[in-house]
């Protein structure tokens, strides 16, 4: 017999699995530390590439002045300033990445928790709907 409540629940579960659930399951398959660590490492790489590109553009913009002054300037001091700026920017970017993916992981886990609870409710519904075996046939089975 069709149970409207069960069908509604199954539709909700199916809709979640097809949409948001797919992404959340991919996220949920990682431990929190591994997931956030993976994204922070990616941010480190992308941030370093972006910084190198911006530095190259900065040098290219004043290339002629740079080439004139390169023998006069304190290269170690210049390199130190570039390095400090890089360190500050990359740390800020990695921190922002940590926050973003920490929140994403939390939301994904919450969504999955609700999904698994709904699965449990569906299982209870099935158990309640399955008719119990009559007492007589149970006794006969136990005798055999």
């Amino acid at each position: 017999m069709l149970s409207e409540q069960r069908i509604k629940l199954m539709t909700k579960l199916s809709s979640y699995e097809a949409g948001e659930g797919r992404k959340n399951m991919a996220v949920g398959s990682y431990f929190r530390g591994d997931y956030i660590g993976k994204e922070v490492i990616k941010s480190f790489i992308y941030g370093t590439i972006a910084y190198c590109i911006m530095f190259a553009v900065y040098v290219a913009y004043d290339f002629d002045i740079f080439m004139q002054d390169i023998y006069k300037m304190d290269l170690i001091e210049f390199g130190k300033n570039v390095g400090i700026l890089y360190a500050k920017l990359i740390v800020a970017y990695m921190l922002a990445t940590y926050l973003v993916y920490h929140i994403r992981y939390k939301h994904a886990r919450r969504g999955l928790r609700i999904y698994y609870n709904n699965l449990r409710r569906l299982s209870v519904m099935y158990r309640n709907e399955t008719p119990e075996e009559p007492e007589k046939s149970k006794r006969l089975k136990n005798k055999n």
């Binding site: 941010s43 992308y46 941030g47 590439i49 972006a50 590109i53 911006m54 553009v57 970017y93």
Partner: peptide, 14 residues
């Protein structure tokens, strides 16, 4: 292209 690449690396990778 450089500007778009930097924007992609910093923001759109999210």
């Amino acid at each position: 292209a450089v500007i778009l690449l930097v924007l992609f690396l910093i923001y759109y990778r999210f």
